[in-house]
Design a protein around this nucleic acid. Sequence first.
DNA 1: CTAAACTCTGTATTTAGTACAGAGCCAAAC
DNA 2: GTTTGGCTCTGTACTAAATACAGAGTTTAG
Lengths: 134, 134
Amino acid sequence: MLTRGKLATRTGCNIETIRYYETIGLIPAPARTASGYRTYGDEHLRRLNFIQRARSLGFSSEQTRGLLDLTEAGGNKTRADVKSLTEEHIDEISEKIKDLQKIKKRLKQISSFCDGSAKSASTCPILESLFDDS
Amino acid sequence: MLTRGKLATRTGCNIETIRYYETIGLIPAPARTASGYRTYGDEHLRRLNFIQRARSLGFSSEQTRGLLDLTEAGGNKTRADVKSLTEEHIDEISEKIKDLQKIKKRLKQISSFCDGSAKSASTCPILESLFDDS
DNA sequence: CTAAACTCTGTATTTAGTACAGAGCCAAAC
DNA sequence: GTTTGGCTCTGTACTAAATACAGAGTTTAG
């Protein structure tokens, strides 16, 4: 069983943010000790890790909640519901991956140009391409 | 030349957010008409598109500024500076791509399970795996 | 020419955290 | 066994990143 501080250090999450996630319902209210200290278990650890990853990838709290809800859709959602929701998320994620790959490709061009013989970065014509859509 | 509203509709960016990006210096202050209306050009369009993409991929305003600065490092940065900065960004982006691919893989498992014969989503044992790290 | 639609500035509100203050709890060092 | 430093508790205040709104001026389309 973990205390709030331990959960924070193990996940790299700010200790206050954990309380915040509890108030907005992203993580369930944990059990408490007799004196009122929160006690977390492995489910909290895994859930919080996932939330952090999702947030760092540009999903809002609500979208993250949506992803998490897929795991506990349980009683009120049918297979078909879950499937179509899931596929929407897959599409969204595929788009994100594509965008990141575009940016990465551009950055690699920049990096390899900077191996060349130009005197300073200001003479780099590739940089401008960072903005293009292709 | 674009008005602020046109720029907003062409980029899908909220009209107020454009003004906000100007005040924090993410986009340069545009030229103005005699009566004070902002007039934007193609550079603004491309820059704003890039900013939106970067933000939706989980980069903070500061990180986004860092990516943009690579394009105009010009006078004050050497090739070596730009190269190492760029490579840090590449690593970060590679991590994001990996994370997204993990989540995508899990979601695909969920989706294909939901094609199966289980009666409801609640009986889906794969969902739980969304939290794992592998 | 005038009314709708747009823009201007400044300020207020929302979302997603993060920080701080004052009080209580707990463990290990004396 | 008590004290003291470090933790937790709650509530509130603050920051960042937008987003919304109000009141005044401007542009444009009928």
